[in-house]
Design a protein around this nucleic acid. Structure first.
Lengths: 222, 222
DNA sequence: AAAGTTATGTGAAATTAATGTCAAATCATA
DNA sequence: TATGATTTGACATTAATTTCACATAACTTT
């Protein structure tokens, strides 16, 4: 039985549905129609129904969707009903920030190890986890069943590091390095390219100003 | 004369082109064809040509594209030939990490101020910039011509803060809070929802394992 | 300067995604 | 249990995006 592939466009929308459903659940709301959700989330009701239907019928005609049930189903689809063990590679500012972001913990992402190539950091503790030398990564990943490696190291180091992670059987890489990683299809990669995001913002500022006749600050001017 | 609107799908690809062109430029490569770029970037040559053509003809038949010229043109399109003054609101781990990320500086994003509501942090210096109380934001934005506010505060604080920023004339918000901001169309918002990104990764791990018959770690198990 | 090659720009075709529509199922109510 | 209101799920339609294909322009070489 062949499962039909769901487009990444749909997947990208699921976390947002999940977030809104979580809020509704928190507020004690038991049921919701696609139309109501449409009003709140500012997407068409049709898209909401279509999106949910990719995974089977979660709703009931004449009633709508049960908030808690839908929430749980989406969490299963996203795989966050499962535990994920993760390690951070690169204990710089960003690495530490992510480590300290406790919300991930609540969603079943368990921070198991931290690695850096700077000897001065060895032994330092972040959220109870000791920073270790990067040489120990392979062994650690294998013995601790690590699923996800968070890459917060400079881009030139990221490429060989990704290869090492692939070789020792990592399942996924959450990549914050500003480089594209080339990995086999059994390893999942999710890129967070912050500067790309900032450039998009810059584009939209510029576009708006062009359209409305305001000017920006020339780089040489003042 | 009406400029035709460029789709966000195209805009999202520009930073990646920009990055690859920057690398080519660094390596001293002067010209490149859409086919060569296609091989390197793993997108179709057709898409590359189509994308660039949205902004006018940057290439030359029989020759290809001049790397440096194309690089400069894209930087203009993205608006990163202009200076952008920015402030950070929320000097937690993530806020500090972003502040210390020097690459933004190189691209014309100038870190001008830092704000927090925790009095213990007032006066602390990050990259030479003093942390100030959030009450001072409005005045600071107005007198220092701030374009972009980086929001790294909890989501419940983010919504009223966004309103304050809108009211004092900010041009754009780079939003790291896990909430959707509702702002008028003259204010640009770019969201970085890290947990959405992590959920997408989780989905892809789960999908791969389902397809290939491996199992994850049950949340209750181990 | 002519011939052959290369590679863009563009319009058309194909694919993918989003939206609109409605029959059928369920709910609420009397 | 019948009636009317509600709302999904499926399908049809429309829109957007990507790919294809080729005429045309510029380059390169002799």
């Amino acid at each position: 039985m062949e499962e039909k592939e769901i487009s990444q466009a749909v997947i990208s929308r699921l976390p947002r549905y999940f977030r809104y459903l979580g809020e509704l659940k928190e507020r004690g709301i038991e049921r919701i129609s696609s139309q109501e959700l449409s009003d709140i989330m500012k997407v068409t009701a049709s898209q909401i129904r279509q999106d949910f239907n990719n995974f089977g019928g979660f709703g009931q005609q004449g009633y709508g969707y049960n908030v808690e049930y839908l929430y749980d189903e989406i969490s299963k689809i996203l795989g966050i009903d499962q535990m994920h063990q993760l390690i951070i590679i690169g204990v710089g500012n960003l690495g530490q920030a992510l480590t300290n972001y406790t919300n991930f913990n609540r969603r079943g992402f368990v921070f198991k190890g931290a690695f850096d190539c700077n000897p001065e950091l060895y032994g330092m503790k972040i959220r109870g986890v000791e920073v270790r030398p990067t040489e120990e990564i392979e062994n650690f990943v294998r013995t601790n069943n690590i699923d996800i490696a968070v890459l917060t190291i400079p881009k030139d180091q990221a490429v060989p590091m990704a290869q090492r992670l692939v070789d020792c059987g990592i399942k996924a890489i959450w990549n914050f390095a500003h480089v594209d990683l080339d990995v086999p299809e059994n390893v999942q990669v999710e890129n967070v390219h912050l500067s790309d995001s900032l450039m998009k913002l810059s584009y939209n500022i510029t576009r708006y100003e062009k359209k409305h006749g305001r000017t920006g600050n020339g780089k040489t001017g003042s």
